[in-house]
Amino acid sequence: MKYPILTLKPDSEVHLRNRHHAIFRSAIDRLPQAEDGDIVEVRNSRGDFLCFAHWNAKAYICGRAIAFEKGDPLTHIRSLMEQAVRLRTALFEKEETTCFRLINAEGDALPGLIVDQYGDVLVIQLTTLGFDRSRDWVMDQLKTLVQPKAIFEKSTGPARKKEGLEEREGWVHGKVDGTIEVKERGLTYLITLEGSQKTGLFLDQREMRSLVRQTAHGRTVLDCCSYVGGFSVNALAGGALTSDAVDYDSAALARAREHATLNGIPADRLQIFSEDVFNFLRRKSLPHPYDFIILDPPAFAKRSADLEPAKKAYTDLNRMALQALPPGGILLTCSCSYQVNPELFQTLVFHAARQAKRNVKILSRHRQAMDHPVNLYHPEGDYLKSLLLWVE
């Protein structure tokens, strides 16, 4: 099958030769005779093949490379999906884990396609027009590869807006009433897909939850921006004395209590506070003398324009946490803002430590969840960073 041809300007092909997926409007010489959402063939100024891509003239990133090899691009996408499923099967076949990222967009060389698995239910996010128009085809492939009981679509967030797409949320194949019970390394969680943040659980923090479980024994934990209590449950399962979960989302905190109960944790070991975390840490007197504080806030810098206020917010939050800890305390601090790279994040924590007048040692850095692979050709996918700190 022949596809419409998109031709790049001279010397505009380097990033595609390096297998980066983005094609910017400024790099285009001749537009393809194609409708938005179509697959196009991308060539350089000499007419050489570069890749196949999803086309969207309305977006600044107007092309997303989906196949760097000649041949049928749909066959290539199917092959990439199969590879992604095989990887997760290998990763989790020996674990008591039934929830994970099945397809990780650019991390699996499939820009615009994210699939999470919760037991026998799949959750899809289609963030580009090309995959949005291929919804039925994508679901057919997933049904063949995974045989899910049901598929829920949660295509929300700013990425779709940039593609000129409305948000979509709801069941697209089958339906599951109520909550879905899943396991993560032996601990039980309840997933409610409709109205939840992300796709029901922050799967990208699995390794850090396990690290908390390993290091929290005998400690009094403060879990800031706790959401549904993943860090708190792991801390308590690991032998923490108590954990206080702080989040503005009261429904998420109620779910955190359910999670504690499901995992056999006595009710008096988990307290919840529906409060802004900055206000909580500014209290004159905190509810407990915490010696393990976890900071896992939402992204403070979603755009480059947000960077300066984000730097102040990260510094202030970490300073208050460091001031609250006794000598020998532990701080796990995280950032999911891509605009704040690991070097800058460590610098902000350095400034916080200086302001708090504390001596601080790095015990560990972020441990990446292996079901969230980062494509070597797309470093922008490496957004999550963490520092586990010992505070003197």
Rank of each mutant, 00 (worst) to 15 (best):
N359W: 12
Q339D: 07
F292P: 10
T215W: 09
V176G: 03
L344T: 03
R64L: 09
Y3I: 07
V40S: 05
L262H: 08
R86H: 14
A267T: 09
A256T: 00
C51S: 13
A353K: 02
A256Q: 13
R283N: 15
L307W: 06
E69R: 06
Q197I: 00
L8P: 04
R88Y: 05
V115M: 12
A260N: 05
S155G: 02
R354V: 15
V374W: 03
K162C: 07
V246P: 03
D249W: 01
A235T: 06
K70Y: 04
F273M: 15
R168L: 14
D268S: 12
G238L: 12
D204H: 12
H15Y: 08
L165I: 02
S155Y: 03
Y377W: 07
Y248W: 08
L281G: 04
G329S: 13
F24R: 10
V221M: 11
D72P: 00
G229Q: 01
K70D: 08
Q214H: 08
T315W: 06
S232Y: 02
V172A: 03
N44M: 15
A301C: 06
L281P: 00
P379G: 08
T127M: 04
C225G: 00
I114M: 14
G112E: 06
L203M: 15
Y290K: 10
L110F: 05
D268T: 07
A27H: 14
P266W: 09
L145Q: 09
H20F: 11
S79N: 14
N279F: 07
N234M: 08
F345V: 12
L193A: 09
N44P: 14
R78L: 12
Q125T: 11
E392C: 09
S155H: 02
I61W: 06
A84G: 07
L31W: 15
F49C: 05
D48K: 15
A53E: 13
C51W: 03
S12A: 15
G381Q: 08
F202Y: 15
C225A: 11
Y314M: 02
P158A: 14
A240D: 00
D120H: 09
L295S: 04
Q117D: 01
K198H: 14
H20R: 13
V14L: 10
K312F: 04
E93L: 07
L80H: 08
Q197K: 14
L110V: 04
R365C: 11
R282D: 13
I5M: 02
L165C: 05
F52W: 13
H366M: 03
D371L: 15
G264A: 09
S304W: 03
D116S: 05
D247N: 11
V221T: 05
S335L: 14
V221S: 10
V340Y: 08
R25L: 11
N341Q: 14
G239D: 06
P148W: 07
L110D: 10
I330N: 10
G130T: 06
K385N: 08
L16K: 04
Y189K: 10
R219G: 05
V182T: 13
S386R: 01
I5Y: 01
A256C: 02
E258T: 15
G229T: 03
C99R: 05
F49T: 11
W171A: 00
D48R: 15
N104A: 12
G329L: 05
D249I: 00
E167D: 14
N44K: 14
D120Q: 11
G107N: 06
Y118W: 11
D72L: 00
A260E: 06
T97E: 06
